[in-house]
């Protein structure tokens, strides 16, 4: 149990009459790489928001590094070691690309020069080094996605949570991100990745969790999970199952 990092214990989120996340449980150890998949509207982003604190749970608990963080604010959780990206990139549009990563890097260094060096390294990691001085509002969609990763990385998180960062990227860019995720994972980082593209999920390997209508319907290694009739049904409809 010593290396347990994240325990999501039966979390539920209701929006009025709609149950977006329904009693989902997830355990992650230090160094795990988990892909979270499921059809549109399944509740993946909502689950992310419950884990990082952007939304408060209706029921259930979230434990991180042995602490109950269910009542903690997103900023407190970020300081504890949660790094995340947003599905709809939340770019700091009036600031430069470097300054976007810098606000994350300040968590590690109070000194601006040192923080900027760290931020620059994170930009290089996602291939945005040459865009450092550009106003982030001028970046393309794919660049903004990568900037989200750089900003979260700059925090130096214990767990990095990526929400569909590959949507809208071209195949070369997707390969580069897969490469980056593998490198970060090899470096010991724990990752939770929401991904729509099943090819990417297969490429990442490791553990997959599937949610549909807010409920966890399968979990395991990609081959087993992706051949599970319920998963095929959720993705392709009943007649294929």
């Amino acid at each position: 149990m010593a290396d347990m990092l994240l325990n999501v214990e039966g979390v539920t989120k209701r929006f009025g009459g709609l149950t977006a996340v329904n009693g989902v449980t997830l355990e992650m150890r230090k160094g795990d790489l988990v892909s979270l998949i499921g059809p549109n509207g399944a509740g993946k982003t909502t689950l992310f928001n419950l884990i990082t604190g952007q939304l408060t749970v209706t029921q259930g608990r979230v434990r991180f590094k042995g602490q109950d963080v269910t009542a903690r604010s997103p900023e407190e959780r970020a300081r504890l070691g949660f790094g995340r990206t947003f599905q709809i990139a939340k770019t700091l549009t009036s600031m430069t690309t470097l300054e976007n990563a810098l606000v994350g890097a300040y968590h590690r260094h109070h000194d601006t020069r040192k923080a900027a060096e760290r931020a620059m390294n994170c930009l290089e990691q996602v291939g945005l080094g040459r865009r450092a001085g550009v106003r982030a509002g001028l970046l393309t969609l794919s660049e903004r996605r990568r900037l989200e990763i750089a900003r979260a990385l700059a925090l130096g998180p214990d767990i990095l949570m990526l929400d569909e960062v590959m949507a809208g990227l071209n195949p070369t860019e997707v390969d580069d991100i897969i490469h980056l995720i593998r490198a970060l994972h090899a470096g010991g980082l724990t990752l939770l990745v929401i991904e729509h593209n099943l090819k990417v999920v297969r490429a990442l390997g490791h553990r997959v969790m599937v949610v549909d209508f807010g409920t966890r319907i399968a979990e395991g290694d990609p081959e087993t999970v992706l051949s599970d009739p319920r998963v095929i049904e959720a993705y392709l409809g009943k007649k294929y199952a």
């Binding site: 990082t52 009036s94 979260a152």
Partner: peptide, 19 residues
């Protein structure tokens, strides 16, 4: 930089630990 981050995107600011 924190003030500017708060002005531009509150959620992004909070996600990197800014109060």
């Amino acid at each position: 930089y924190f003030l500017q981050a708060v002005r531009d995107e509150q959620d992004a600011a909070r996600s990197v630990g800014i109060s």
